[in-house]
Design a protein around this nucleic acid. Structure first.
Lengths: 335, 335
DNA sequence: CTTGGGCTGTGAATCGATTCAATCGTACCC
DNA sequence: GGGTACGATTGAATCGATTCACAGCCCAAG
């Protein structure tokens, strides 16, 4: 059906070994042989069969990346960064969308193993890393993205979410807010619980301040909207005076519910702060304050660590690159 | 290194053929053999080598999807839809980000050919489909996404962009606007030029109405912001009274520049309408009117067409599924 | 003239899952 | 007992690119 190296070799009047050399080590082949083979390739429309190549070589040229949710611009940016670095190394990135679901995550992990990827970058959905540990022990480099697990022996690239949570809450408290509602995604997601922990810490340092948690099933605009809606069922006097959303999607949803659908004044009645500082944060009804993470740099760095592991499989492990979150103040918190 | 079927066979005391059968046709194997083999697989941590499988079977279990820009939530939604349908068919989607760049697009096309994907879904960056035609003629099904090319012989799933452009402009005109600025992405992108064509048509039907085109290098928030900024360099009396952005990202950027940075009143001074109706459209400073496209349905349907081609390679070609765009009116056009 | 070294080029062996014709039992029927 | 049928199992052949030990050739040095 499709032309193979064998066909090309026949057409060019050389051996298969030579064709392979033209493909992979052209400098080892005389110029006019390269020419003849190249022409034959062109003529036959030959395209290297990557499966055969992989089988022989023993590994692929791709890196697997599993993120919590591709619909989140933050992860889209992470993926771009990862892709850029992989590109430089002549590799490509396979992107898997776990959709905050451990089972889907598992399916992608399995798929990537079958594909013999060079390594896996992952933002795990759960604390359970037994699977990842097995994968790593079987020789596949693993790098945690946007997440750190000290002691588990994984390289990681993360942003200190506890600090980020602290910074966000401290900012609200500094603005005089005392009753904070934390609109959370699933608390089983580490980023969420860390941000909460940081926020709690800030609250505890402030006499009279309280924080309550609204757990949503997912980190989406829709979830944020419905969380804020149920929040509005209370009498105004019992409502919180600030909302800290676990990410910008939730915050955007909350703003839709509060400002647009219910006419709550932001930040006068309720201040809102999100997390991630996605592109849209500056364009919301009331421009959204947020905590910025260097998304694409995270992706880029993660691939970097992976390549280092590939380079030197015996090298030091558990390198944790940690970025600092950065508060971005806009109108939604009275900036 | 990693365990192979051969190792599993030895460990379970059966032949490699039986292991393969357990993997692929368990009903053909007696229950206790299945059990023994399964245990051996477990014990050895065997994971099927997909490259070998692919090599033998002749094709992969994946579908390639190349979109203009993964950072655009519209395409993220398309990808989700595609993934959902592929999943149902036991396939997975390889996502390529062309980034509006024909060369990157070509690289992914090449990659997908090497991987022997079952088919390619693509939103082409250019009009030049010679490459795609070659791919199709070589036996790889191709489905155009969010784009139609009558006569070229490709199946496609699209939304009538000319109509969408017409609807958007007609809406602005119906609101009394007469001087429309079309903030365009690269006009080489068909969606952009089609939307412009539709808008032009509406303008021509309206005495005294004019439309001018601001071409941006890309379809991003940033590009929209700078286009709107340069628009503001004119004296207020010479500014347009409406902006039609080729997509929501541009519109969001334009809103940032107009409303937030320059204090232009929307829609009083300038009305704004976008295209795609992404999740964030409802949450912008001034909720954004837009033209909705059923993004995830587009992705889902595209895979559907692809599967049909796979099913029946000789079947009818050039099936064009066309959805109708839907006007969504919000405050940015005085809704 | 011979030897040695540097280039080119060769082709059989290899990776691991799948396939399918062939074999082996066992049960059943006449 | 002989024959048939059927289910379970076997294992050699296969897919296509890569690799590497080896061969052929030519020129320069001895």
């Amino acid at each position: 059906m499709a032309a193979s190296v064998r066909d090309v070799a026949a057409a060019a009047g050389v051996s298969v070994g030579t064709v392979s050399n033209v493909l992979n080590r052209p400098h080892k082949v005389s110029a006019d042989t390269v020419e003849r083979v190249t022409q034959a390739i062109e003529r036959l429309g030959f395209v290297r069969n990557d499966a055969a190549r992989q089988l022989r070589v023993g590994r692929s040229r791709s890196i697997g990346l599993i993120v919590l949710d591709t619909a989140n611009p933050f992860f889209a940016a992470v993926a771009r960064g990862a892709e850029a670095r992989a590109d430089e190394a002549g590799m490509s990135v396979l992107l898997g969308n776990a959709d905050e679901d451990a089972e889907r995550e598992g399916r992608y992990l399995e798929l990537f193993r079958e594909q013999r990827v060079n390594g896996v970058l992952i933002t795990p959905t759960t604390e359970d890393v037994a699977r990842l540990a097995r994968l790593r022990d079987a020789g596949t480099p693993v790098v945690l993205v946007d997440r750190e697990m000290p002691g588990a022996g994984f390289d990681s690239v993360s942003v200190d979410d506890v600090e980020g949570g602290y910074v966000a809450a401290a900012h609200l408290l500094a603005g005089g807010r005392r009753r904070i509602a934390f609109i959370a995604g699933p608390l089983s997601i580490r980023q969420v619980s860390d941000r909460l922990e940081g926020a709690r810490r800030a609250v505890e340092e402030t006499p009279g301040a309280t924080i309550e948690v609204w757990e949503c099933p997912s980190l989406t605009v829709l979830a944020g909207r419905s969380a804020a809606t149920s929040l509005l069922e209370r009498r105004p006097s019992e409502r919180p005076d600030a909302v800290f959303a676990a990410n910008d999607l939730l915050a955007v949803g909350a703003i839709q519910a509060l400002a647009i659908m219910a006419g709550v004044r932001i930040p006068d009645d309720i201040a809102v702060i999100g997390y991630d500082d996605i592109d849209f944060a500056a364009a919301t009804v009331v421009p959204l304050s947020s905590v910025r993470q260097p998304a694409s740099v995270i992706g880029y760095t993660a691939v970097d660590l992976l390549l280092a592991q590939l380079e030197d499989p015996q090298g030091v492990r558990e390198r944790n690159v940690r970025f600092r979150p950065e508060l971005v103040v806009r109108a939604s918190t009275g900036g």
